[in-house]
């Protein structure tokens, strides 16, 4: 794989993460437990759609074949998407969606920090914008985790189960493959081992404050980064892509 191909593939993974998480979040519109959370969820999802658009456009420019953000989003098949499995998981209840958000963003924050320092100027600029948004999201999610953990007996048990269930998807964030290795080497990209340590430290701090316990070391599922998704994913794409696919030549 050439350096250019590495950069495009890496950028698309980031874009897919942003888009797929946003798509799950917007399923929650009009279903939040209170009005203030409607505003927060919509606001954060908008940030992710914005990031996905910047990242797809950047990938399109790097590729140089005139592929638009919408072609990336709506005209690729399941196996061409390279998002983390964690992000495509169904929303479940408020605690499940919250834990997904919290675990991913605790990682993403450090990833973006590292990306600001990478040698690709476009990615570095996008990361610098995104990190401001994600810092804010992360504070919000951490506060909610503490409220649910240290709330009622019921909420503690419920969100502990969310944490236990989501944990198996976290390994994928730190398992570097050829693209991660090449991106680190050729573009001064993130060191995933170092990020794992920071992530663990941050997650442990909030989980402790929330009076929850960190799940035990366990078997981890992976495959999203290589295009092998869960059964849920095809339905997500079918819904998201249906208009573009039904009217392939139309402008919207």
């Amino acid at each position: 794989m050439s350096a250019d191909q590495t950069l495009i593939a890496y950028t698309l993974r980031l874009a897919d993460n942003a888009l797929i998480l946003a798509q799950r979040m917007i399923e929650l519109v009009a279903a939040e437990p209170e009005l203030e959370e409607e505003l927060a969820n919509a606001n954060f999802a908008l940030d992710y759609i914005g990031q996905a658009r910047m990242l797809y456009s950047h990938a399109g420019e790097l590729e140089g074949n005139g592929r638009s953000e919408d072609e990336f989003a709506f005209m690729r098949d399941e196996h061409e998407f390279r998002n983390l499995l964690l992000l495509e998981q169904p929303n479940g209840h408020f605690g499940d969606a919250l834990v997904r958000q919290f675990l991913f963003e605790a990682f993403y924050l450090h990833l973006l920090e590292a990306l600001i320092a990478c040698s690709d100027q476009g990615l570095s600029e996008i990361a610098a914008r995104a990190i401001k948004e994600v810092k804010y999201h992360n504070r919000h999610s951490a506060q909610w985790l503490v409220r649910l953990g240290d709330g009622t007996e019921f909420s503690r048990e419920r969100v502990q189960a969310s944490l236990d269930n989501a944990w198996r998807y976290t390994g994928e964030m730190f398992t570097g493959d050829d693209i991660d290795v090449a991106f680190q080497r050729d573009f001064d990209g993130p060191n995933l081992n170092a990020i794992r340590d920071l992530w663990k430290r941050d997650v442990e701090r909030t989980v402790t404050e929330a009076t929850l316990r960190l799940p035990d070391e366990q078997w981890m599922v992976s495959g999203g980064k290589q295009g092998q998704h869960s059964e849920h994913f095809g339905f997500l794409l079918a819904e998201m892509q249906y208009l573009q696919r039904s009217f392939p030549s139309a402008t919207w």
């Binding site: 399923e27 409607e38 759609i49 953000e69 573009q244």
Partner: peptide, 25 residues
């Protein structure tokens, strides 16, 4: 929202729905 036909339209619609929640508030 989940079926908006372009990312731009999706963002605009989401911003609108968010505005409506704000109006309610």
């Amino acid at each position: 929202l989940t079926r908006a036909p372009s990312l731009k339209r999706k963002a605009i619609l989401l911003a609108k729905v968010q505005d409506e929640a704000g109006h309610g508030l």
